[in-house]
């Protein structure tokens, strides 16, 4: 029949252990157990307390200028940073920044020794520790000087929006109404202040999740599709040597890589500054157009946005002159 259970169990209860050290190898088990327990206690007791965050906030509030960046590391701590620092320091402009080039200085508020990779090339300044929270001041080695930020110009006094259907151009009126938003899959919220086109379409400043699920404050301007396009006329734009910007679609609209490309064309006066295409999967894609010929001038900037399809073309862009 079968060998008795205990015999079966015990027959091999010993490893073949010719060397002395092997006979003590079992100690690894309790050692690992105790290390695990100790690490658990250490990890659960090392959470940054609220007072450390508050102290860091006081410091940053005193030191930071409006043009400085305030950012939190690691990235997952961002909601805590926003809650502890408040919307005046952790502004939507800072949180939804297109990139870091415009900021001359950054206050990196960090826990767990983390750093933001996007600030890696910046010069390290003072680091102040507030318990478990460290604030590091970093200097941008080559900050850009922004003249005009189009995202801040989505107002009725600086922007006119129209929908172009073939040869016909129809003005889209600026409206103040309730915002519109939803859950997962809805796309960026549509703010109450927006340009609305009677035949369909809108333009507004919103915050979109890009392909990396990062916040991007941008001009939400979904193209109507087919033969129609959106035209945005920014008035009195101060030009420098470059038009610097980014564009993307809301993550769930472009991550499957099935949608029609979206084109954006920038014109000033009678000249086309440049035309760019965003294909699904490109993500938050940067561009820079040479505006050297217009440097120092103030002119209207016309932006045309078009796509062969309007199906979930939840397009968003941002640009500034510098």
């Amino acid at each position: 029949m079968y060998p008795p259970r205990v015999a079966l169990a015990n027959e091999d209860l010993r490893f073949q252990t010719p060397r002395a050290w092997k006979s003590w190898a079992f100690v690894a088990v309790p050692v690992v157990g105790m290390i695990e327990l100790g690490a658990h206690v250490a990890q659960t007791c090392s959470v940054a307390p609220e007072r450390d965050w508050r102290a860091a906030r006081e410091y940053v509030a005193q030191e930071a200028k409006p043009g400085d960046l305030v950012a939190f590391a690691p990235r997952w701590a961002d909601p805590i940073g926003r809650e502890r620092f408040g919307a005046r320091l952790a502004t939507v402009e800072r949180e939804g920044r297109p990139d870091e080039t415009r900021f001359p200085r950054a206050f990196e508020v960090a826990i767990r020794g983390a750093h933001l990779p996007e600030l890696a090339g910046w010069r390290n300044g003072a680091a102040r520790r507030f318990g478990a929270v460290t604030v590091t001041t970093r200097e941008n080695p080559a900050p850009a000087s922004v003249l005009d930020d189009l995202v801040s110009m989505v107002t009725p006094d600086r922007l006119r929006v129209s929908r172009v259907d073939g040869d016909r151009e129809t003005e889209c009126s600026f409206q103040r109404s309730a915002p519109s938003s939803g859950g997962l899959g809805f796309g960026p919220a549509i703010p109450g202040d927006r340009f609305t086109c009677a035949a369909g379409g809108f333009v507004a400043t919103s915050v979109a999740a890009d392909l990396d699920y990062r916040a991007r404050r941008c001009i939400y301007a979904p193209p109507p599709g087919e033969s129609a396009s959106l035209r945005l006329r920014f008035s009195g734009v101060r030009f420098g040597h470059a038009l610097h910007g980014h564009h993307a679609l809301y993550v769930e609209a472009e991550r499957d890589r099935r949608g029609a490309p979206v084109s954006i064309t920038f014109k000033a006066g009678h000249s086309t500054l440049g035309s760019l295409v965003h294909a699904d999967g490109d993500g938050w894609k940067g561009f820079e157009l040479d505006t050297g010929e217009l440097a120092g001038q103030v002119a209207d900037l016309v932006v045309d946005i078009a796509s062969a399809s309007g199906d979930r073309r939840m397009y968003c862009f941002e640009a500034d002159t510098r």
Binding site: F85, A189, V207, V251
Partner: peptide, 20 residues
Amino acid sequence: LHMNEVDYSIWTAFGTDAPA
């Protein structure tokens, strides 16, 4: 991670990015 978009929608709908 993929729910970040809802977070950002709230920023726009509420006019603040700071949780209470």
